[in-house]
C-alpha cells in the first residue's frame, strides 16, 4: 500500500511538471501534498501529517493561487492628448480608453494607464516596462525599429503650420517623429521639441517659422494652451495618417489580438459610434 501511494506521488510529480497551464500545475501540487500527508499518517508520523496538511495542502496552494489569481495587468503608457486619452478631475476619459478597456476585458487583463512624457515612451516600451503605447499614436510617430503598430482606428492628418511670409527660423517638430513618409524637409531645417505645447509657445515667440504635427495633437494643444496663433498662419496638409496603438515588436501575440479586436470593432460598426461620441 505504501509503495502504491509512493508510485502515485511519482506520477503526480511528473504530471505537475508536464502541465501547460500554471493553475493546473498548482492544483496538482496541492494533491501531491495531500497524498504525501496521507503517507505521513500511514507511517506513524501524525505531527508531520497535520503540519504538511495545513501548510502544503492549504497554504501553499492558496499563496500560489493568490499570486496567479489574475494574469496581470495591461500596462498602457500614453501622452495626454484630449480627446484621445486624457484625465479630467482625476478620472480617465477618452475614445482610446473605451477601446482599451474593451480589449483588456476581452483578454482578461486589468487595464492600467500611466501618463508619461514624450521622451520616455520609447525607453519604457523597449525595456518591456509597458505593453501598449496609446495617446494619439500614429505610424512614424516614434522612429523606432523595436515598435510595431496595430491597425488604425481613426483618420487624421499630418499638418504643417507656418507664417504666410515665411520668416526666419527652423520648422518645429516633435522629437523622434519620423517624417520620411510624408515630406522631404531636410534634417537641418528641423528643430526638435518634446511637446506640441512648447512648439506653439516657441512659434508665438517667433523662434520658429512653423511647425509640423498631427491634427489631433495640434488641436488639443491649441485648446489647452488656450492661445490663438499670433501671426497670420497657413495650414498645409502634408498627408493622411491612421491613429493606432503600438506594442513592442517582440509581442506578436498581443499585437495579433489587438488587431483582431480592432477589426471586430470596425466590422460591428461600434467604432463609428464611439468616435462620434468623442470627436464632435
Amino acid at each position: 500500500m505504501l509503495i502504491l501511494f509512493s508510485l502515485l506521488l511519482l506520477g503526480l510529480s511528473v504530471a505537475v511538471l508536464l502541465q501547460n497551464r500554471l493553475l493546473n500545475a498548482v492544483i496538482l501540487l496541492g494533491v501531491f501534498s495531500l497524498v504525501s500527508s496521507v503517507i505521513y499518517f500511514w507511517v506513524g508520523a501524525p505531527d508531520v501529517a497535520v503540519t504538511e496538511g495545513a501548510i502544503g495542502v492549504a497554504f501553499v496552494t492558496f499563496i500560489y493561487v493568490l499570486a496567479l489569481s489574475d494574469q496581470g495587468k495591461l500596462h498602457v503608457i500614453a501622452e495626454e492628448v484630449p480627446p484621445f486619452l486624457f484625465q479630467e478631475k482625476g478620472e480617465l476619459q477618452g475614445a482610446e480608453l473605451e477601446i482599451l478597456e474593451g480589449f483588456a476585458e476581452k483578454i482578461n487583463l486589468e487595464l492600467e494607464v500611466e501618463f508619461v512624457g514624450h521622451q520616455e515612451l520609447t525607453s519604457l516600451i523597449g525595456g518591456r516596462r509597458a505593453d501598449v503605447i496609446a495617446g494619439a499614436y500614429f505610424p512614424g510617430f516614434l522612429a523606432q525599429e523595436e515598435i510595431s503598430h496595430s491597425k488604425g482606428y481613426n483618420q487624421g492628418q499630418l499638418a504643417k503650420i507656418h507664417r504666410t511670409p515665411p520668416g526666419e527660423g527652423d520648422i518645429g517638430i516633435l522629437a523622434e517623429t519620423d517624417l520620411s513618409e510624408f515630406t522631404e524637409i531636410s534634417e537641418e531645417d528641423l528643430s526638435r521639441f518634446s511637446s506640441v505645447d512648447e512648439m506653439v509657445t516657441a512659434y508665438n515667440e517667433g523662434r520658429i517659422r512653423g511647425f509640423i504635427s498631427d491634427s489631433g495633437r495640434m488641436s488639443a494643444s491649441l485648446y489647452r494652451v488656450n492661445t490663438t496663433l499670433r501671426d497670420k498662419s497657413e495650414i498645409v496638409t502634408l498627408g493622411e495618417l491612421d491613429y493606432s496603438f503600438a506594442v513592442s515588436s517582440g509581442e506578436e501575440e498581443l499585437l495579433d489580438r489587438l488587431n483582431d479586436y480592432l477589426a471586430d470593432l470596425t466590422r460591428s460598426g461600434k467604432i463609428g459610434e464611439l468616435l462620434s461620441d468623442h470627436f464632435r
Partner: peptide
C-alpha cells in the same frame, strides 16, 4: 522539498 521530507520520514 516535499520529496526530501518524505525520504527522511520513510
Amino acid at each position: 522539498n516535499t520529496a526530501t521530507i518524505l525520504f527522511f520520514v520513510l
